[in-house]
C-alpha cells in the first residue's frame, strides 16, 4: 500500500497526468473509450468483484450509469480498486475520473483535497459490531474495550470523540485494510469492530459464523457517502452529479429498468423533459438527448440499484431507512430535471 501511494504521489508530483486540472475530463474519457472509476478493494454491496470478476455494488452502479450516459454501454468502465488512504491521491493525480468508493462527505475533504462531492449515494453512520457472547446491548457498555478499526477513514476520529464524550476508556488498533481489520477482530485481538454500519453488515458476511455477531443499535456519526470528482472541471462535475440525480428522479417518476421503453413514450411533461423528447437537457450536460433512458436501461433507478445491491434483494438485507425517497419517509431527494 505504501508503494502504491508512493507511485500516486510521484505521479502527482511529476504532473505526469495530462488531464489533471483541465476542463477536459469528458473529452479524455471519450477519447480513451473507457471511464476510469476508483472503487473499494472489495466491500460487498458497494463495490466488489463477483466470482467471474465482474464488479457489482451500488457504488459500481454509479460508475456504470456514467459510462452508460456517455457511451450507451455500462461495461465501458475500468475499475481501479483503492485502499482508503490511496483513494484521494489517485483522484488528484488523474489516475481515475470518478471516485465512487463509500467515501464520507466532510467539509475538509470537499475543500482541501482539490475534489468535489457530487451527491450522496448512501446515507450511512458509524456503528459497532460485537460478538453476541459478550452480552453487550449498547455502545455505552463498551468502557475499556479494545476496538479494531481500518486506518485512513473518518472512523478513527469519530471513535475518539465518542469515547471521550462519554468518559469511556478504550484501546484502538488500526489496520491497513478492511480484511486485516476483520481478521484481527475475528481472532479476538479486539472486542469491537467499528466502521460505517453498512460496512459492518457487509463485513459480517465474511465472518465464519455471522450469526454470532451483532451490530449495536447506536449510530455515532453522520456518514453521507458519495462520489467525488476533481476540482476545476465543472462540466464533468455536473455530468456525474446529474447521473446520480437521474437515478433518484427515475425512482420518483416511477421509471424502472423494465418499463423504461414504455415510459419514454409517455405524454407527461416531466417525463418528456427527462427522456429528451421535449427540449435538449441531455445536450446541456454534454451528453445526448436520451441520456436519461440510457442510465435507467443500464442500471435501473436508484431504488432498484439499492435493492439489488444492499437492500432486500441482496445478502445484506439492509432496510431503506434514511435512503428511502423524501416522499416516502427518507431523505433521498434529487432536484428536478427541468
Amino acid at each position: 500500500m505504501k508503494r502504491v501511494s508512493l507511485v500516486f504521489t510521484l505521479a502527482l508530483a511529476a504532473g505526469l497526468s495530462t488531464n489533471a486540472a483541465t476542463a477536459q475530463t469528458l473529452k479524455t474519457v471519450k477519447d480513451r473509450g473507457l471511464l476510469s472509476c476508483g472503487v473499494s478493494q472489495g466491500l460487498p454491496g458497494f463495490s466488489s468483484p463477483d466470482d467471474k470478476g465482474n464488479w457489482t455494488g451500488i457504488d459500481v452502479d454509479v460508475c456504470r450509469a456514467v459510462a452508460a450516459a456517455i457511451f450507451d454501454d455500462p461495461t465501458k468502465v475500468k475499475f481501479v480498486p483503492l485502499s482508503a488512504k490511496d483513494r484521494f491521491t489517485a483522484l488528484q493525480s488523474g489516475e481515475i475520473d470518478v471516485l465512487s468508493r463509500n467515501t464520507t462527505w466532510t467539509l475538509s475533504r470537499d475543500t482541501s483535497l482539490g475534489a468535489n462531492f457530487t451527491g450522496v449515494t448512501y446515507y450511512d453512520g458509524q456503528g459497532f459490531l460485537v460478538k453476541k457472547s459478550l452480552k453487550v446491548n449498547s455502545a455505552l457498555e463498551l468502557n475499556s474495550a479494545s476496538v479494531c478499526v481500518q486506518t485512513g477513514t473518518t472512523t478513527e476520529q469519530n471513535l475518539a470523540d465518542y469515547f471521550k464524550g462519554n468518559n469511556m476508556k478504550y484501546e484502538v488498533i488500526a489496520f491497513g485494510t478492511a480484511d486485516e481489520t476483520v481478521k484481527a477482530y475475528e481472532s479476538g485481538r479486539c472486542d469491537v469492530f467499528t466502521s460505517d454500519v453498512s460496512q459492518l453488515y457487509a463485513e459480517r458476511l465474511k465472518l465464519s459464523n455471522p450469526a454470532d455477531h451483532a451490530v449495536l443499535p447506536e449510530v455515532i456519526s453522520k456518514e453521507p457517502l458519495g462520489p467525488m470528482v476533481r476540482h476545476g472541471d465543472d462540466q464533468w462535475f455536473d455530468l456525474v452529479k446529474w447521473t446520480l440525480f437521474a437515478m433518484v428522479d427515475a425512482e420518483e417518476l416511477g421509471v424502472t429498468q423494465k418499463n423504461v421503453g414504455e415510459m419514454a413514450k409517455s405524454d407527461k411533461p416531466e417525463l418528456k423533459r427527462a427522456f429528451g423528447t421535449d427540449g435538449n437537457l441531455g445536450e446541456q450536460l454534454g451528453l445526448t438527448k436520451d441520456w436519461f433512458s440510457r442510465i435507467v436501461k443500464a442500471v435501473g433507478n436508484y431504488g432498484e440499484s439499492f435493492d439489488r445491491n444492499v437492500g432486500s434483494g441482496s445478502k445484506l438485507g439492509i432496510a431503506r431507512g434514511l435512503n428511502q425517497l423524501w416522499n416516502k419517509g427518507g431523505i433521498q431527494y434529487a432536484p428536478p430535471i427541468r
Partner: peptide, 15 residues
C-alpha cells in the same frame, strides 16, 4: 501507519 497512514488520509497532504 500513524503518520503516512492516518494523518495522510485525514489531511490529504500526500506530497
Amino acid at each position: 501507519s500513524v503518520f503516512a497512514g492516518t494523518t495522510l488520509s485525514q489531511t490529504g497532504q500526500a506530497i
